[in-house]
Nucleic acid binder design. Structure first.
Length: 492
DNA sequence: GACCCTTTGAAGTGT
DNA sequence: ACACTTCAAAGGGTC
């Protein structure tokens, strides 16, 4: 990973920033100047953070290579412990943690990870509000209870349950929010109702993204607070010892061989059998900024529109997302960043690849049947997935080939408020050609995607499909819709 | 009951 | 480096 200093950190993703959103109007652009500066700072802080992360979190741990089971699990634990010790030596424990808003997941090392972000005052106006106001403090067993969160050093010895001033809308956004622990709900991963809708067995509840832990694989650890009992989470609340983190690392290793075999594939008898295991072990991706925004805004839009169909709601939400100011969006990018950070801490060995379905199974199958060509990818896959499961049918949907976007609804009374018309009912500028995507519209030196990943991006022009507009059969159709349709069309 | 649709963003894969 | 693909949430609709 390139070493980027704070000074040049703004180059990170800077290319994106050169693209202004012209539809916002000049006034708003002026208003956003300061916000952009904040975003710059956020991005720089992300650079620093990534740097710190890579150095302190033993990047090698996250590399997919040593995935195979027990042996690497032991190593993972060892490395995680070492990383933690190192950070504690380096004084990371004393750093203020931006995770004060996220109770029960106070990682000492996270403070170190994020400290530049807070220390330099580079938060956006929205993000700055993460600075704590007090909730009741939660004493952590084995740690001194300090009732004062006024100084950062206290953060290391207790778990302050600090609620964000935006608590009404922010904590529901985070997967680790107090709300996610509310008593009536059980952990989505092993709720009896889990998997009711989703093949992966993961509940679609609003809190579904609380990362589950298999109850079989992990003893249930009662939370110090009674209302948390019954929640099967990694035992972060019980103390953030290296051992605890290492166990998490081990846990995530445990997931590898099974969970990488597809939560979403179609249910064949074989996949069903394995699906039972997947239900317990599947670790979901952390939510991105837009997903967090959707989770927050969906109820409002639903209430306003009297429409529950998610595809329509999502269209509206997509529009609204683009109409947000950079400042407002920055809030969600920041949340998403923290989600990713937290996720990476909870599941050090997890990779988004673990949840991939069709590509890897297709590859595995291909190379099982034609073992003479083994790419590095399939090599990895084959070494990690059992042959039987690798032969599972691909999970990609087999669908009708022509299900283009729904026809434009004509002559019906719109259930949408005027300002919330879905795209088909409003005059939205036609999306740019397919080739004009995120990568190509950027100017200046391109940056690695991994670097730009968490930067609050400049809002690109809408790239996705024009809903309800019958897409032309060829090039001008949207990226997502087109590729998905092509994909489906190519399915057997 | 499983999957589709629809959105944006993150991250993985392939060339 | 870049293009492409998959998945994350949601819930009504479809088969």
């Amino acid at each position: 990973m390139p070493q980027l200093s704070r000074e040049d950190g703004d180059d990170l993703g800077a290319s994106d920033e050169l693209i202004a959103f012209k539809d916002e109007g000049e006034q708003e652009e002026k208003r956003n100047v300061s916000a952009e500066r904040d975003l710059d700072d956020v991005k720089s802080s992300l650079v620093n953070e990534s740097e710190t992360n890579s150095s302190s979190d033993s990047e090698a741990d996250r590399r997919p290579e040593p995935r195979p089971g027990v042996v690497s699990r032991g190593r993972q634990s060892q490395l995680s412990e070492e990383a933690l010790r190192k950070q504690q030596r380096d004084g990371g424990v004393l750093q203020p943690s931006p995770y004060v808003g996220y109770p029960f997941f106070m990682f000492p090392d996270l403070g170190n990870l994020c400290s530049p972000y807070l220390a330099n005052g580079a938060l956006t106006a929205g993000a700055r509000t993460y600075l704590p106001f007090q909730w009741p403090l939660l004493d952590v067993p084995g740690r001194a209870s300090v009732r004062d969160t006024a100084t950062p050093s206290h953060l290391s010895s207790s778990v302050p349950i600090v609620q964000h001033p935006h608590v009404s809308h922010l904590h529901p956004l985070l997967s680790y929010s107090p709300e996610a622990f509310s008593p009536p709900r059980t952990s989505p991963g092993f709720s009896p109702e889990a998997g009711k809708r989703h093949p992966s067995g993961v509940s679609r509840s609003p809190h579904a993204s609380c990362y589950p832990v298999s109850p079989g694989a992990m003893p249930q650890i009662p939370h110090p607070l009674g209302w948390l009992q019954g929640q099967h989470m990694y035992p972060m609340a019980g103390g953030f010892s290296p051992a605890a983190l290492a166990m998490n690392a081990s846990m995530s290793r445990l997931h590898s061989p099974v969970s990488r075999l597809c939560p979403h594939r179609k249910a064949t008898p074989e996949t069903k059998r394995e699906g039972d295991e997947d239900k317990k072990l599947h670790i979901k991706k952390p939510l991105n900024a837009f997903m967090l925004y959707m989770r927050e805004e969906r109820p409002k839009v639903v209430a306003m529109c009297k429409v529950k169909e998610s595809s329509s709601i999502n269209q509206i939400l997509g529009q609204r997302w683009h109409s947000l100011t950079k400042d407002e969006q920055a809030k969600y990018y920041e949340l998403a960043r923290q989600e990713r950070l937290l996720h990476s801490k909870l599941y050090p060995g997890w990779s988004a690849r673990d949840n991939y379905v069709s590509m890897k199974t297709a590859h595995a199958r291909h190379h099982l049947t034609q073992p003479h060509t083994v790419s590095h990818l399939t090599h990895t896959h084959l070494s990690q997935a059992s042959p039987a499961s690798s032969l599972d049918s691909p999970a990609t949907p087999t669908t009708s080939l022509a299900s283009p976007a729904a026809p434009a609804p004509t002559g019906h009374t719109s259930p949408y408020p005027e300002q919330l018309q879905p795209l088909s009912l409003t005059t939205k500028p036609q999306r740019p050609p397919l080739s004009l995507n995120r990568a190509t519209i950027t100017t200046g030196p391109s940056t690695p995607s991994s670097n730009t990943a968490s930067s609050p991006p400049q809002r690109p022009p809408p790239l996705r499909s024009q809903p309800f507009l019958a897409p032309p059969p060829t090039s001008s159709s949207s990226h997502g819709a087109l590729t998905q349709q092509l994909r489906r069309t190519n399915q057997p």
